[in-house]
Design a binder for these strands. Structure first.
Lengths: 138, 138
DNA sequence: CAGCATCCGCTTTGATACTG
DNA sequence: CAGTATCAAAGCGGATGCTG
């Protein structure tokens, strides 16, 4: 627990994460897309199997149609999901995880688990911080 | 690799991730804070040991002073880092990871590794997508 | 059903100038 | 040195109305 963290040395860290500036960072380039408000939610929704557009909409009731379309398009563009159109009438479009999308969920799920496990503690820290701040101001 | 994903069933997923609506989701509550543009960068910078304000600024040259202050404050508030003030003249403020901050980096680093490993493939998917799109339009 | 186009507000970020 | 305060810019996301 007090052991020194996994050794990224500073130079390597700077190289990997920013390539000098944050704009040219490959890690950012990837994570920026999935760090949106809805992307991970949709990927997790698809983790049990393919879903249609309207099914995804029902799954996340508070997403707007605009954002659902846009997020699915971005995920498709980056290769996280496939998009299959059945030109029936009315049309039917099915989304499904690719192998890339599937493999992403593995490390991401670890982060979700961490967040769930640490939520209470973080909320406590926030409360404590805000309380002390209020005291100082008084 | 084709094995069915770790089984979150749909109901549990909806409960954990959104509690009905995305606003009351504890996981989001946690991840929103660290999904900012600079938070993870600063946490990683601190992974090798405490740093002063100006040192962190030098570490990420393209961050503005405003964002550095704000991000550090948020990380402190949520208990990821400590902030120690030495009331010398001129003042000296040292930031360091807490145990929470340290433990966060573990799952997060796995995600960074995934991003690095899959960056090339994702860029390729993007190119392919954009090329096909251009064809369709033509 | 599964989108696209437009407009519009809010939040996030950045630039700049000033302070204990 | 380590901030705070103010203002302006940009981007994300939502609401609405319209199509094949």
């Amino acid at each position: 627990m007090t052991d020194p963290l996994p050794a990224w040395n500073r130079a390597e860290l700077a190289g990997i994460l920013t390539n000098g500036l944050i704009e040219n960072c490959p890690v950012r380039d990837v994570l920026n897309q999935v760090s949106g408000k809805w992307a991970t939610l949709l990927l997790m929704a698809l983790s049990e199997g393919p879903l249609r557009f309207a099914e995804l909409k029902r799954f996340t009731p508070d997403i707007s149609q605009r954002m659902l379309t846009k997020t699915l398009r971005d995920l498709h563009r980056d290769g996280y999901i496939t998009r299959t159109v059945y030109p029936t009438k009315p049309p039917k479009v099915v989304y499904a995880l690719t192998e890339t999308g599937r493999s992403f969920l593995d490390p991401f799920q670890a982060l979700v688990a961490w967040a769930r496990n640490n939520h209470a503690q973080i909320r406590a820290a926030r409360l404590s911080f805000d309380r002390e701040e209020a005291e100082t101001l008084a």
